[in-house]
């Protein structure tokens, strides 16, 4: 779309800026100020501590591991949150036919399942004693796995369960993105007798790029919150902090920021840290 220079565009932005100012940045500013205090908002007046809360967060046992796990989840979940849904969306779109509605509904099912219930269903599937995963894994030559009490399997389990929910979300975004591809472009390409792969590489993927950027952004930003709910039900951050991430750490620190300054400090750090990552990412993909 061509950008104009005339007229007054500000009116279009006012509702959005007002909303984020009042309900996100205003409170965030308050949190940032409070992160310099020792406070609880109830039984005692706030007391200035400078950067004490930040020092405390960095000294928290497990903070380093939670940070690296956060990065780890971002990377590990990408195949399930970007590649698989992209492939599935394109294949369903190219196939067409009567099964399209079926696939669209089934792939979206996990998103519709209440989060607490979805994680619980997986908890049963992963229970080593009920042993539902034993037989399928046995076929692959893998012995029984203690999913939730061994570090690596537990990390994998949290990733897969989170990915299971996210898959459908990304799928519907890619599907929506595909609908905006102009029929004429495809027809013209077909008249050129372009093969399926060339069509995909030179037309479909480039046209899907705006949506792909969105999905990658969503993965980076939301991998933390998405995994949080799963961690809470499946592992509570264990074994020994092996599946924790910064959001779970924040939850443990205080659950709600005003249980203490360190949680406020961590909130500020998460915001600023992700801000830096996203800024770099946007610069790279522009």
């Amino acid at each position: 779309m061509t950008a104009l220079t005339r007229a007054r565009p500000v009116a279009y932005l006012v509702p959005a800026l007002l909303a984020v100012g009042l309900t996100v940045y205003g409170p965030l500013l308050a949190v940032a100020v409070l992160s310099l205090f020792d406070f609880n908002l109830t039984t005692r007046p706030p007391e200035w501590t400078g950067l004490g809360n930040y020092r405390e967060i960095f000294a928290t046992p497990g903070a380093g591991q939670a940070f690296w796990n956060t990065v780890g989840y971002m990377v590990a979940i990408t195949p399930l949150s970007v590649l698989a849904p992209l492939t599935a969306a394109v294949v369903v779109w190219r196939l067409g036919g009567r099964l399209v509605a079926f696939y669209r509904t089934v792939f979206f099912l996990p998103v519709l399942v209440p989060p607490a219930v979805g994680a619980v269903m997986w908890e049963w599937i992963l229970n080593p004693v009920l042993g539902i995963t034993d037989e399928p894994l046995g076929l692959l030559g893998i012995g029984p796995v203690d999913w939730l009490t061994d570090r690596v399997p537990a990390f994998a389990a949290v990733t897969v369960v989170s990915g299971w929910k996210v898959f459908g979300l990304s799928f519907i975004l890619f599907t929506a993105g595909l609908t905006t591809i102009d029929a004429d472009v495809m027809d013209a390409a077909r008249l050129d007798r372009a093969g399926e792969w060339r069509l995909l590489r030179h037309i479909v993927l480039p046209l899907l790029r705006p949506m792909t950027t969105v999905v990658v952004f969503a993965t980076v930003v939301f991998a933390g919150p998405w995994t949080f709910g799963v961690i809470d039900v499946l592992t509570q951050g264990g074994p020994a902090g092996g599946t924790s991430n910064v959001y779970y750490l924040l939850y443990q620190q205080a659950f709600s920021f005003f249980s203490g300054g360190p949680a406020a400090a961590l909130s500020v750090l998460i915001t600023v840290g992700f801000g830096a990552v996203v800024a770099l990412q946007l610069r790279a993909t522009r």
Partner: peptide
């Protein structure tokens, strides 16, 4: 997108930056 507005990059960053703030903090 329609207007070449001064500060529109900033405005965009401000709007999508809300995703970075942990819900628990708010």
């Amino acid at each position: 997108t329609r207007y070449r507005l001064r500060g529109r990059r900033v405005a965009f960053a401000v709007l999508i930056g809300t995703a970075l703030v942990p819900q628990q903090a708010l």
